[in-house]
Design a binder for these strands. Sequence first.
DNA 1: CCACAATCTGGTAGCGCTATCAGAACAAGA
DNA 2: TCTTGTTCTGATAGCGCTACCAGATTGTGG
Lengths: 341, 341
Amino acid sequence: MSNETPDKITIADVARVAGVSVSTVSRVLNNEKYVRPDKKEAVQKAVEKLNYRPNVFARSLAGDTSFLIGLLFDDPRGDYLSGLLRGAMQQCQRVGYHLVVELVDKETPDQIDTFLDKLQMSGVILTPPVCDNREILDALTRRGIPTVRIAPEVPCDGMASIVIDNHRAAFTMTNYLISLGHTDIGFITGDTEHADAGERLDGYRAAMSENGLELNPDWIEEGGFTFETGLDCAVRILSRPNKPTAIFASNDEMAASVITIADKFGIKVPEELSIAGFDDLTLASFVCPSLTTIHQPVEDMAIAAVKRLMEIRENPNEGWQKPTTLGSKFVLRRSTVAPSS
Amino acid sequence: MSNETPDKITIADVARVAGVSVSTVSRVLNNEKYVRPDKKEAVQKAVEKLNYRPNVFARSLAGDTSFLIGLLFDDPRGDYLSGLLRGAMQQCQRVGYHLVVELVDKETPDQIDTFLDKLQMSGVILTPPVCDNREILDALTRRGIPTVRIAPEVPCDGMASIVIDNHRAAFTMTNYLISLGHTDIGFITGDTEHADAGERLDGYRAAMSENGLELNPDWIEEGGFTFETGLDCAVRILSRPNKPTAIFASNDEMAASVITIADKFGIKVPEELSIAGFDDLTLASFVCPSLTTIHQPVEDMAIAAVKRLMEIRENPNEGWQKPTTLGSKFVLRRSTVAPSS
DNA sequence: CCACAATCTGGTAGCGCTATCAGAACAAGA
DNA sequence: TCTTGTTCTGATAGCGCTACCAGATTGTGG
């Protein structure tokens, strides 16, 4: 009846079974050099046989790595952030690390110090918008903790980052709309504070000018990456006497706003107005018509972040500040067609 | 220039400053009794002054708690799961614990053993559908790790759980539809494997019978909590010669399916067909018309889970198997109106 | 053959904390 | 006064592991 707790197996047990010293076992576990192949194998066999798992706490206390990676959030909700979480978990699992998540509350900024001091993180991943929080960046730098920022806005010396090719993606989307026959293409920007927003706008501009199309300032509105701001922009653009035949919104939420407003204005989508989004949130498939958009490889970005962290650990003195850029993907759905005229 | 790593402050430093022994400091830190108030205060002052943070690894290694709570996911995406994550992070922060998240991969089931052996979790929170995974439940039970399951389907001896009042909520919603004047009310169930699904169906049934309304089996279809299964159910119900004037779907995704299909069939929503959902996902506000639904207190459930874990630690021998039930909230939006006839 | 380096191996001192024990201080009753 | 119990305090032995050092073993060139 009594299902006793299985005896704790320590490194000493492994050493005994393998017929070596604890030092040697430790060496094998940490993949150090200077271990003879036969002993290495013996240790591995013993580990297997005893089903031994090294204790993270003891390792952390004695050594300098904790095998813990911190993932800092402002708010984990939404497709984007939870996609990052998923990717990070996957990759951590693969490399035998563990993910500790923490909310970064604006009201209690020094909690980050507590967090970093209590758990000696091996590395930290910063998600937007936390990745641009100066206090946090400083706290991390001060402690010399390897850090990777995902889609940061502002630059930060010597910190690695993972970004996507916003410019190219926006360029591709705009080009696609032009290739359908659109010449009157509106654009709704994101929050201009955000680097992504600017890059997407630039990509749109580049495609327009490269195709000899003029930008009509009446059709370019500044949104804020939210459904509400998108509504305002859509109203402004679609209230004008001359309307564009297509609108490219900087993200899916704002594209959804455009659909809503077009509906209110009695403008048929996509027949009278093509709409393109960016991000490929789940809502992009749900809205009617479903959104032609740009799919961000969110999970891959998190995976890349963890990989980057491992590289930094192994080679701390490289120049890691150059961002890693991942490619995005064009997704064709129902919200874009050739102009009707 | 050189921003030196701040000297590590240990419990010994605190002891020296406070003029007591490390034992006493430890006692204060762990809130043990048998410490004179004046010494306690001296220690607290010293902690404050030195900005001391206890090292989690040392505490875990020496003691029996790790101050880490595990949150196990099948997939963290979607409003529901990321809401849980947010709640759990919040509450952990409040009580000075930390959240370690892990993906439970079906392909590598023994990874959970590794996980549990490596990091001695103080407690574990199981999210659906992981909370019904037998292997994991066994692994946890075997180790005697305090566990709380969120919205579990199947019972499990001696394990705490957090649930919502599905029955009452479904009853309320159905009653609301009836009060509008609907008598022909269809229902789309969730995955029948899931306990939630059955309870919601029962709530609907109870309200119908209590109001003297008969159930029309033509209008009750078995879905699977997904957008796709919802589409099928909607098609089946709305293809019938006699259609209901309202459909209550067991979750928002399936309610969204009904909107889509009604649209295809040329049925006006809500004028000709009222639609109610359940869960209050973000999509409930986005779809057109926005969904009248039941809001689940997702974050609160996670908060309750962490609290429960703390209670279990403090009082391990209580009967914790009784589920904690949280109340849900009726949310009125645009998808439901009185029948037109 | 030796000298010297390169490659291995084991012993052991902690990492920072808690658990445990022995004993001090104090209170209350005989 | 001396018990007896209760409250309080400090010394110290680890928790399981890695870092470091000292020594053993092997390889290489003169």
